[in-house]
Design a protein around this nucleic acid. Structure first.
Length: 272
DNA sequence: ACTGGATCCTGACTGC
DNA sequence: TGCAGTCAGGATCCAG
């Protein structure tokens, strides 16, 4: 479920509850997430959260006093919500970060593809983070970057922009949207997209992600922010899950095609 | 170095 | 109603 805008929305929701406050307890009801939740997460107990950040789709809850912090990934079906620590847990509420304030940040994840780990020292050096590409909303990301990395690549440009080593945070929804916005067929070989079109693609990725963040993310089925509310970008999707509906630009029916085992949506007339 | 495929897991939905 | 099959927003790992 969550792509970069949804993770960013979640971060902005939980940060005020965490930053500057002490963690009273880490309650792990079910430790079998993508990787087992390590006992080390209890090192957060009794410590003040110094900062909350995001890198790619990972949430970093930094605890300077402990020389490390919590690393959280929402996977495909995870969400974080703020509630009272004594609210009864619901199905799939696997972990609570209980705060001194009496509030708690509760991690729910039906499919358990999410992760909660502990990092020591510099989080950027963590094995899950160290080989990641640039943030799409940073100055390190550009059309020139995409063009350079794509030379000689025969795989579909859609799979290319979803590869976290190329650029982070572009998931299945926004990949289809950005390719439509820049007029590029998702199945086209990445290495056969011109420099000018990579420039347009980079701009589209930036625009669609920034706009989705302003709308509080995309709720297709079950995404909710930290307050339990949905995001409002779904109503603005141009091609995603619009198979058979008229293209907003030319009226041609939107098509669906599986690329890299993921559904891809595109206009066969507007995209080349 | 790159690419495609399998895989982890539950729930919602479809068609018989 | 029930049941089998399909699909889902991620990303790692492995074989070739």
């Amino acid at each position: 479920m969550p792509e970069l805008p949804e993770v960013e929305t979640t971060l902005r929701g939980i940060a005020p509850c965490l930053e500057g406050h002490a963690i009273a307890a880490m309650v792990v009801r079910n430790s079998s997430l993508r990787w087992p939740v390590p006992a080390a997460v209890s090192r957060a107990e009794g410590q003040v959260v110094s900062a909350c950040r995001r890198r790619a789709k990972y949430l970093l809850i930094e605890i300077a006093e402990a020389g490390g912090g919590l690393l959280l990934h929402l996977g495909m079906s995870g969400s974080l919500r703020i509630c009272d620590a004594d609210d009864a847990p619901r199905k799939h509420d696997h972990v609570d970060i209980v705060m001194d304030s009496g509030l708690c940040v509760r991690f729910n994840d039906p499919r358990r593809f999410g992760a909660l780990l502990w990092w020591d020292g510099n989080p950027e050096a963590h094995e899950l983070l160290r080989d990641l590409g640039p943030e799409p909303l940073s100055n390190d990301f550009s059309g020139e970057h995409l063009w350079r990395l794509s030379r000689g690549r025969k795989g579909a440009v859609k799979s290319f922009i979803m590869d976290g080593h190329v650029v982070v945070g572009v998931g299945n929804i926004y990949a289809s949207e950005a390719l439509f916005m820049s007029g590029i067929l998702p199945s086209r070989a990445a290495g056969r997209v011109s420099a000018a079109r990579h420039e347009a693609l980079a701009a589209a990725i930036r625009d669609v992600l920034a706009h989705a963040i302003r709308r509080g993310g995309t709720t297709l089925r079950d995404f909710v922010n930290a307050e339990g509310n949905p995001g409002y970008f779904a109503q603005e999707l141009l091609v995603y899950e619009r198979e058979g509906n008229a293209c907003f630009q030319c009226g041609t029916p939107i098509r669906r095609k599986v690329i890299g085992q993921r559904s891809s949506y595109f206009c066969p007339r507007c995209q080349r």
